[in-house]
């Protein structure tokens, strides 16, 4: 009987420690993805298959990929050559995790030690029952993130006098005191 929880817990712990101690941001991000998958295995084992899938798809799949994308974009002097011996650590951890996943998934029922699995149906009933308002508020949350990220991330035009062309070509010249000057000394 394979101690899934303990193995996944160990992998999560080791990889999170590796995240904090790395110098190279890319290595840290990859270790963190490993830690997320390990936590997903714990969810699988704790009787929460839906959330385990969400964690892998959304957290590791979308958020961390966005993170890696931006870090690669910035590329702050990151030495990307990966020597052979550096593969040993992640390889061992991933192997342990694979064993955990295989053990958990093999066989039709989800083998959880004494825990009735909460099926996606229960979560859906809760989400669109008492927590319907929460789902609406979460959408407001994402809207706020969207608008803030758009404003902060938008490229700055080279020449940006206070009014006129820089904002949007052919903009109606608004009222108020147009004080044109060099942008952001």
């Amino acid at each position: 009987m394979f101690p899934v929880f303990y193995v996944a817990g160990l992998v999560a712990l080791v990889s999170t420690v590796m995240v904090v101690t790395r110098r190279n941001p890319i290595h840290a991000l990859l270790y963190f993805i490993l830690s997320l998958v390990a936590v997903a295995v714990i969810f699988l084992d704790a009787g929460a298959p839906f959330v385990a899938a969400l964690e892998v798809i959304i957290y590791a799949g979308a958020i961390m990929v966005l993170f890696i994308f931006v870090v690669m974009l910035l590329n702050p002097g990151v030495a990307l050559v990966i020597r052979a011996r550096e593969w040993i650590g992640p390889a061992i951890l991933s192997l342990l995790l694979t064993l955990g996943i295989v053990y958990s998934v093999v066989g039709s029922t989800i083998k959880t030690m004494g825990i009735s699995a909460t099926t996606p149906k229960d979560i859906a009933m809760a989400l669109f029952g008492p927590y319907l308002l929460g789902v609406e508020l979460a959408s407001l949350l994402l809207l706020a993130g969207l608008v803030a990220a758009y404003h902060l991330g938008r490229r700055i035009e080279r020449e940006a006098p206070a009014r006129g062309a820089s904002l949007q070509p052919g903009a109606p010249v608004g009222s108020g005191a147009p004080s044109s000057r060099k942008e952001g000394a």
Binding site: I58, Y59, A62, I63, L66, F67, V70, A138, L141, L142, A144, G145, L146, A148, A149, Y150, L152, G153
Partner: peptide
């Protein structure tokens, strides 16, 4: 949802 929004604003 919160982590996604925070990472997007943080990365921007």
């Amino acid at each position: 949802a919160m982590a996604a929004a925070e990472v997007s604003v943080g990365l921007a």
